[in-house]
């Protein structure tokens, strides 16, 4: 929870977004405190990915307010938002087929000092070192996810948006990604995590923001998750 002493890093207020003519987000509001890991939960099609894309400035039409470190970003192009220190790992991982692993790693420009070095990333994900000259899309799903996360850690961004990083991955890799997120949190990174894997979410998050049909319908602190289980089951249909 925002502790009241430090201003939130991110305040989303009344966010509306559209894909062409179809209105998808209807007044989404939530905030994220520095160093906090917040999940977005919700059924398929609830608007979680769209929320991240709107934060990243990737949707042509969006309205409302997104204050990021005190800067209003609702009208900024995506490149400016990235330069403010927001790093994005998309749901489909976004590994470029025509780039080698290493070229993928070095694609996003450094936006702040203090990003992970190439060696540190290979230390965290040893598979990537072995495959660094392969084409990006010759990687396994898990390796692609590692690359997508490592790629963002290199930039020095300290506010990360991770869209379903565990989707479709084997348990060992899910564990490895969980450890990575915990390590990032320990280093003071702020994370918004979209997750379907509820157990995974509960293990790493401070707070859960629940979405339904383009709206925020509930916010549950992680320490009350046990007590709120019934409610949550209802939202998620599990």
């Amino acid at each position: 929870m925002p502790d009241g002493t430090r201003p939130p890093r991110l305040t989303v207020d009344g966010l509306n977004a559209w894909y062409g003519p179809s209105h998808v987000l209807f007044g989404v509001s939530f905030d994220v405190a520095p160093g906090e890991v917040v999940t977005l939960l919700g059924r398929n099609g609830a608007g979680k990915t769209t929320t991240l894309r709107a934060l990243m400035g990737m949707l042509p039409k969006r309205m409302g307010s997104i204050l990021f470190d005190g800067v209003e970003t609702i009208g900024l192009p995506g490149r400016r938002i990235a330069r403010l220190g927001m790093g994005y790992v998309p749901e489909e991982r976004g590994i470029f087929a025509s780039l080698s692993v290493r070229e993928n790693l070095f694609l996003p420009p450094e936006i702040a000092p203090g990003g992970a070095s190439e060696e540190e990333i290979y230390g965290l994900f040893p598979n990537l070192r072995e495959r660094r000259f392969s084409r990006g899309t010759q990687l396994s799903g898990g390796e692609q996810q590692m690359l997508a996360i490592g790629r963002i850690m290199r930039t020095g961004a300290r506010f990360l948006l991770l869209d379903e990083p565990t989707e479709g991955l084997a348990p060992v890799i899910v564990e490895q990604i969980g450890r990575t997120i915990a390590a990032l949190k320990a280093q003071g990174f702020t994370v918004i995590l979209v997750e379907q894997n509820f157990r995974f979410a509960a293990a790493v998050a401070d707070r859960h923001v629940v979405m339904e049909t383009g709206r925020v319908v509930d916010t549950i602190p992680n320490d009350q998750i046990g007590a709120s289980m019934g409610r949550l089951r209802g939202y998620l249909g599990i």
Partner: peptide, 24 residues
């Protein structure tokens, strides 16, 4: 080269390249 890999990436997915902070 680096600029070339940025160009190839922008051919594939300009939106994501922009979201990395590059002026597409």
């Amino acid at each position: 080269t680096r600029i070339g890999s940025t160009l190839r990436a922008a051919q594939e997915n300009p939106g994501l390249v922009e979201a990395f902070g590059i002026n597409v």
